[in-house]
Design a protein around this nucleic acid. Structure first.
Lengths: 249, 249
DNA sequence: GCAAAAGTGTTTTGTGTACACCCATGA
DNA sequence: TCATGGGTGTACACAAAACACTTTTGC
């Protein structure tokens, strides 16, 4: 049914990927990686070299592996990122969801892997989606000589996406907005030390609304989740802002 | 592998249930049915006659069926309830979740259905959970001569549950509380016409806290989601309360 | 001294809560 | 006319929003 090819330079080869002995068929996990940089909320997307469509990192679930573990594992395998804040937010299970923009066929063909036409890899996936939050400033350490390309995209300027991943991202962003937690979002998307203005811009970006400088500061400080540190002198001709860190970090 | 038995009195026989030709293996849906009656939030649970454990209605997913449709279908098959408000809230995927209190073995044995020991029905299920909200006052129309017993239980006095269904119910209740929508909860859990006091008791029950009569009324009315109807004369020696209905009904 | 940006103080507005009072109902 | 429970009005506390002013920084 499956003709294996030499694909050993990859951490997890595609022929292994579709070998069903260990995987739960028709089930996958997807991870949206959110990062924040200069007024923009970004997502980290992957693209196989030979394809024109981008996708969020994800993969299959082993039969003896929990969904949460599968999310963390596939995230690591495809980005080398570890110990991220990961949270499940929705499971996508429409019948047509993998019909559109399904890159599996061309991907397997271009690699000379022949798979039976009615193999489950061509059928509908029930996909449980997670989102991860990471500090954008350490993101350039990603391995970009993987078997795929990775790049950051602004959430409102997504490229051509595989499957229904544009819908997945939209829903993930909705979830992030509705369940906004000052502590979790701030402490995972910002570097360890940050100014009040950076924190404010982060929340303004995610929620897509503006706050008053002074009222925002008062509200955040009243939550008692920040520790005030030294001042940050940038050389500009104005009062130097304090740096802060989250108490739980 | 599977020895069929005559089970034709059931809508969906167990032998069909474990016949894997049409189902996605290792995947299921579960539905928590919430009902409200006299200061108590209840869940509708099912029990096979020969078993000691109760479970929420649920079932398997056809390969050409969406998760949402599967939830609605299994709910109908096992309770004959249709067109309910149904919402997905979480997908449970821990490896040990179906090890504990798994009734499949004894159920199949008692019905003389022999299934291979390593059949997927004995393995871990990835289960997407939904909750439904229904008007308790029409609930007595359920068929109770099904192939199982069904009964209402208070959410804080659950019987011995199959699998991890107690955890599923707890998480569903949490979701309901955190995402409380006055419109959705009220218009699905109450009869068409209701008094302000009934509405208040509903919210007090779900949120497990008390409100002031007058302040609650003001707050609800300010949302402009209710239509005031005629008064309700009960024969008691006090001012008759207005009846209300939701505008979206 | 000046502009720019940060920090803090004060006033106003709005919402939630507590208390009080009046009204309808049937015995 | 009385007890009971429903409806409405008002006062207060607190938080959010709006506005104003002061402080720091480098030129």
């Amino acid at each position: 049914m499956i003709k294996k090819v030499d694909d050993s330079k990859n951490k997890l080869s595609l022929s292994e990927l579709i070998d069903t002995t260990g995987f739960v068929e028709h089930v996958s996990v997807d991870c949206i990686i959110f990062g924040f940089n200069k007024n923009e909320l970004k997502v980290l997307l992957l693209k196989y070299h030979e394809l024109e469509r981008w996708s969020v990192p994800g993969g299959f679930v082993f039969k003896n592996e929990s969904l949460d573990d599968a999310a963390a594992r596939t995230l690591y395998e495809r980005t080398h990122l570890e110990n991220l804040f990961l949270q499940q937010f929705y499971t996508f299970g429409d019948v047509e969801r993998t019909d559109q923009n399904n890159p599996h066929r061309e991907l397997l063909k271009s690699r000379n892997i022949s798979v039976d036409a009615n193999h489950w890899i061509y059928q509908r996936f029930i996909s449980t989606a997670y989102f991860a939050l990471i500090d954008f400033t350490i993101s350039h350490t990603f391995p970009d000589t993987f078997n795929e390309t990775c790049a950051w995209f602004s959430v409102d300027e997504l490229p051509k996406m595989a499957f229904d991943h544009d819908v997945v991202i939209k829903k993930g962003l909705d979830f992030l907005r509705k369940n906004l937690d000052y502590n979790i979002v701030g402490s995972n998307l910002l570097p360890e030390k940050f100014t009040m203005k950076e924190l404010q811009t982060l929340y303004e970006t995610i929620l897509d609304e503006k706050f008053r400088r002074n009222n925002f500061q008062r509200k955040i400080l009243s939550l008692n989740i920040l520790q005030r540190l030294e001042k940050l002198y940038t050389g500009s001709a104005n009062k130097a802002p304090y740096l802060y860190k989250f108490l739980n970090k």
